[in-house]
Amino acid sequence: MTAKDIKHPLRGIRNPLLPAVLALFAFSVNAQDDETLTKQVELEQAPAPGPEGYHQPPSLDDIPEGPFGDSVRSGWQAFVNTRQHPEAKRFVGNKQNCGNCHLASGLAANSAPMWGAWGIYPKYRGKNDHVNTMDERIRGCFTYSMNAGGSEAGGPPEPDSQVLKDMQAFFFWSAKGAPIGENLPGRGYAAVPKPENEISVSRGEEVYQDQCAVCHGNDGSGKFADDGRQIFPPLWGAGAYNWGAGMHRINTAAAFIKYNMPLGKASPVEKEAALTDQQAWDVAAFINSHERPQDPRWEGSKASTDEKWHTHQCLYNETVRGHTLGDGAG
């Protein structure tokens, strides 16, 4: 293993069946200094908004002219049209754009807005005794949500690369006037209490057919225009987020879905929901009961990957519809 491999441990781990030793070594090195890359850490809950409401980002029409504005615009485009952006697209190993899970160009409260994230990083985490930077957070999103291991580049963007700079210029611009170092109202997704009834994948399937399939497709593969641009994103299969992404946790997916989906019915900024808590959890479980690209932290077997990385609410290595999940897709 070269020095470069250690710095970018995820590069080249395209095939989950690479020798487990390699993956293990890469990650043990990595985990010490960079937890954002080994884990999409669950965010803490944000406080409720006061009478002044949520932070108001500036209008996208008011991005200034000049080199700073150019960088902001490039970062915005890399965020919403990641698969078309000349630089960002090289790091996308599935069929996602950042904006799929961060609605309204990453500006909507309760949709994990970027203005909510901006003032939180760099963030010290005692657990790994490391200061996590925004740079690393974004690289983590590329690694899991965008499955960078399967991309043309084979891994997330290099630290401090232009696309990361542009994205951060965009986040910075959107946070204008927001306090720094505070967990702002509207940050992250608003947690949905776990319902009293058991979570049911088959009830979730009914919700999905009734309320989601018209856009995301019966087979969860989404819809794309003739020129390849996304209309509706895939939720499972090769085009989806991978088994390491935050969205594969059922509680996180339920929280996203409750106030963001179905598109046009739920309203994140107004915190209006179209589904009951039970429906949100059930459909979140249904979506995450399908194969998707392998966890890039593959430990050599589903069981050992499960044990090491999946001690949260998810269906990795669980048996659903007669199939033990975790084979990967793509």
Binding site: L103, A104, C215, I231, S267, V269, E270, E272
Partner: peptide, 13 residues
């Protein structure tokens, strides 16, 4: 989004 209205083009193409 303040009014809960997504882009029309996100559904109508």
């Amino acid at each position: 989004w303040q009014q809960g209205i997504p882009a029309c083009t996100s559904c109508h193409g």
